[in-house]
């Protein structure tokens, strides 16, 4: 290695250090710790009513995973997020693509203003958005919910039949603008020569949008869908907030809620071990779904 190269390597490391340290501390370390925790549980130190008032940490192997994987509550929660995603993700992605195409065309004046407007919901913290929408769903506070009939004895938007749609509405409202930006960035990276050539060949605006723009933002669509799948499996703000006014939902309605409440001692077995096992199982499911989607997408593209 020449002196110069060594010098450069040193600077490279120095520049990377702040990120690397942060990454290790707040990302890698907690993951390693969670994986370790998932293999441990605790048992009463002694017999008796209160187990001697002390507990021991014990290695339990895959017991926590086995429990999470055989828990019907976990899979019905997973089923709910999948049903949610199967409808919400396509709706949101198509809406985002439509808005992006609109802003990229010459049909709209002041696209900057519209772009900001569509993006604004994403700038509102997720929990606040969930609170605002929960108020809109609550007959006592909402300007319109009181006019709608109860379903199965429960307020319209909060009833078992509609609550997933009510949550999907919040998510769509929040993330459509965000996904639109992903598409818009991809659209603006397309060389304008292509459009010019197409126009000379007599292509209409519609043809340019469907034959040039949409095929060329496929990569962006893949990214947006993958992020959405992962986000859906981790759905937390919406069910947490809505559950405060729809107590029938139970505290394992969705997997993330279940992991959280397991940690909080609200679901037996509780604690760090079982909660970590649920989280890791969730990550595995989300990861598999993302991989499956990417593979299917690639096959179709061929």
């Amino acid at each position: 290695m020449s002196r110069n190269a060594r010098h450069q390597a040193l600077f490279g490391w120095l520049f990377a250090a702040p990120f690397a340290i942060g990454f290790l501390l707040v990302f890698v370390a907690p993951i390693i710790w969670a994986i370790r925790a998932a293999f441990f549980g605790s048992e009463a130190a002694e017999g008796g009513l209160y187990g001697g008032g002390a507990r021991r940490e014990v290695f339990v192997g895959f017991k926590n995973f086995a429990h999470a994987a055989t828990n019907p509550g976990f899979w019905s929660g997973m089923g709910r997020v999948l049903a949610f995603g199967a409808i919400q993700i396509p709706v949101m992605i198509l809406a985002a693509l439509f808005l992006a195409l609109l802003l990229d065309s010459f049909l709209v004046r002041r696209p900057g203003l519209w772009r900001l407007g569509y993006f604004l919901p994403f700038a509102i913290p997720g929990l606040i958005a969930a609170i605002v929408w929960t108020y809109l769903y609550l007959p006592e506070l909402s300007p319109f919910a009181a006019a709608l009939p109860d379903l199965d004895g429960i307020a319209f938007f909060l009833s078992p039949r509609l609550v997933l749609a009510s949550m999907a509405n919040i998510t769509t409202w929040t993330y459509t603008g965000y996904n639109m930006l992903i598409f818009l960035a991809a659209l603006q990276a397309i060389p304008h020569d292509l459009y010019e050539a197409a126009r000379i060949d007599g292509a209409s605006g519609w043809v340019i949008a469907t034959k040039i723009k949409i095929p060329l933002v496929r990569g962006a669509a893949l990214l947006a869908v993958l992020l959405s799948i992962i986000g859906t499996v981790q759905l937390f703000n919406e069910p947490t907030m809505i559950r405060t006014v729809a107590t029938w939902m139970g505290n394992d309605y969705m997997p993330m809620l279940m992991a959280y409440n397991t940690l909080m001692g609200q679901i037996s077995p509780s604690g760090m071990g079982p909660a970590s096992a649920i989280s890791i199982l969730m990550a595995v499911v989300a990861g598999s779904l993302a991989v499956i989607y990417a593979l299917v997408q690639r096959r179709i593209a061929r």
Binding site: T247, W248, M249, M264, G265, Q266, S270
Partner: peptide
């Protein structure tokens, strides 16, 4: 009982 915190949510639900 110890663990009553996990009894409360099921009861509420």
């Amino acid at each position: 009982i110890p663990g009553f915190s996990a009894v409360v949510p099921k009861t509420t639900e």
